[in-house]
């Protein structure tokens, strides 16, 4: 599983805003045209991103093996015909090219995930989206990251309790209902407690923003990100 690893690579030292823009720019460029030259070009950019994060492309592909295995089925599904010749090559190749252009998106996403802590993305969201929406989303992201393990533990506890009471013998709809309702009750109780805690701590619309700063090295990354994002328009 890909997750943040502390480090001092070029990718680690970049501002998360420039990395986000590069990532979105590459994603737009990659999905714009399902052609081989376009795929080669965007993959080259993605490999540069991996090099900046000092990630091995093979290790990243191994991390995505399940996703890639499922996507690899698409050309076979596209090529299968319900009569002679039973398998058509053209739709299969077309599908393979479509699936192939996802590869650079996955690679650049891996570079971002391993070089950017969640708190930096949260800070970027809070700064990029102005006003109250940015505050709500930034603080909300921080709280979801903090509370997700607790809620997951709650849900697993409920599931284990259902099993312990012979729940596996119950019908599917009843097990799903029990799991959903008990998990929801615990979640809403947590919400009530969080609400009281936030009010007690004077939850305000104008908290101190987390620090972020552009450096000289961010500007080329920003420029390439913008160029990639508009490249489909230029090439038409």
């Amino acid at each position: 599983m890909l997750s943040y690893r502390p480090g001092s690579t070029v990718a680690h030292r970049l501002d998360p805003r420039s990395k986000l823009l590069f990532q979105f720019g590459l994603a737009i460029a990659a999905v714009a045209h399902p052609t081989l030259p376009w795929l080669v070009g965007t993959t080259a950019f993605a490999l540069c991103a991996l090099a900046a994060a000092r990630l091995s492309p093979l290790a990243v592909l191994r991390s995505y093996r399940i996703v890639l295995a499922v996507l690899a089925l698409a050309p076979f599904v596209a090529g299968v015909a319900l009569g002679p010749p039973w398998f058509r090559v053209d739709p299969a190749l077309r599908s393979a090219l479509h699936v192939g252009r996802i590869l650079p998106v996955l690679l650049v996403s891996a570079a971002y995930l391993t070089s950017t802590p969640v708190r930096d993305t949260r800070a970027a969201v809070q700064r990029l989206i102005p006003g109250k929406p940015g505050q709500i989303l930034g603080i909300g992201m921080a709280l979801v990251v903090r509370l997700f393990p607790l809620v997951l533990a709650d849900v697993r506890e409920v599931r284990d309790a259902i099993h312990a009471r012979g729940g596996e013998a119950r019908p599917l709809w009843d097990r799903a209902r029990l799991l959903a309702v008990r998990s929801l009750e615990r979640t809403l109780d947590r919400s009530d407690r969080l609400s009281v805690a936030l009010r007690a701590r004077c939850f305000a619309w104008n908290p101190t923003l987390p620090p972020l700063a552009f450096d000289r090295r961010d500007y080329p990354v920003l420029a390439v990100g913008i160029a990639l994002a508009v490249s489909p328009l230029v090439s038409v």
Binding site: M1, L2, S3, Y4, Q23, F24, A27, V31, Y64, I66, V67, V70, L71, A74, I102, V105, L106, L107, V108, S109, A110, Y112, L113, T116, P117, V118, T121, R122, V125, L137, M141, V144, V145, F148
Partner: peptide
């Protein structure tokens, strides 16, 4: 969705990242 894009393992099977949102398993 934002927390998943930021890297928290919140999508199915602990997946994360913009690559998963755009592609996932399709």
């Amino acid at each position: 969705v934002l927390v998943g894009i930021a890297g928290a393992p919140v999508f199915s099977n602990g997946a994360a990242g913009i690559g998963y949102v755009i592609a996932g398993k399709g």
